[in-house]
């Protein structure tokens, strides 16, 4: 989140942002488009997405409309520490109402993908990835009491109880970007 540091004015210096883009020789807009938000450039900042966004409603700073504007201006570093994209519930109500088919949800997730490359990823997300790799389930609970209580076998008929299936899943994951990023141990 951008918060003015002590003694530093709360002003965005657009020229510095543009200069940085030039130095790094890549436009933020293009990076985000690569990551799946192809229609970002069609945004006209009408605000319909923000009108229905749960994040905007509860006071996250870089909700869909504002995030898109920041990207269009070439902002990136300023956003890396911000939790907003990781709070997106992917509800897609924004996508449904967007008059220019930008799909603000895709922008949120493209920013997540951009942040991941910079290792700006929340611990909880790492844990989810680890669980997905280890068990095939992002939400994984070892306590089997509840299943037994309702009369179900201890393990569901999933990767949790199917070694070959888990191996298959791991094979896939090992050949994706997840492995290249090295975010979680994938040695087995």
């Amino acid at each position: 989140m951008i918060e003015s540091e002590e003694g530093v004015p709360n002003v965005l210096n657009l020229s510095e942002i543009a200069e940085r883009e030039r130095e790094e020789d890549e436009r933020v807009v293009e990076i985000v488009r690569e990551f799946g938000a192809e229609n970002l450039i069609y945004c006209m900042q009408c605000g319909s997405c923000a009108a229905v966004c749960p994040l905007a409603r509860v006071g996250f700073e870089w909700y869909n409309k504002k995030l898109i504007k920041a990207l269009l201006l070439g902002m990136k570093e300023e956003l890396l520490d911000d939790p907003t994209p990781w709070a997106c519930v992917a509800c897609n109500r924004c996508t449904e109402v967007c008059p220019r088919q930008v799909s603000p949800f895709e922008v949120m997730f493209a920013v997540r993908r951009m942040m991941v490359e910079e290792f700006a990823i929340p611990t909880l997300a790492i844990e989810g990835l680890r669980a997905l790799y280890e068990y095939g389930h992002a939400v994984y609970m070892t306590g089997r009491e509840a299943r037994k209580k309702v009369g179900l076998p201890e393990k569901p008929p999933s990767t949790d109880s199917d070694e070959q299936a888990l191996k298959d899943l791991k094979t896939i994951l090992k050949n994706t970007k997840l492995a290249k990023l090295g975010l979680i141990p994938m040695n087995d």
Binding site: G36, W86, I121, A125, L132, A138, P157, T159, D162, A165
Partner: peptide, 28 residues
């Protein structure tokens, strides 16, 4: 029973990392 099924994958996992990886897990 759809034996051998896994996480869909949910939003905080592969969809946040890479679109191809997301689709591959879903496709399996």
């Amino acid at each position: 029973e759809l034996k051998g099924q896994s996480c869909c994958p949910t939003w905080g996992t592969m969809p946040s990392i890479d679109i191809t990886a997301w689709c591959a897990v879903a496709a399996r």
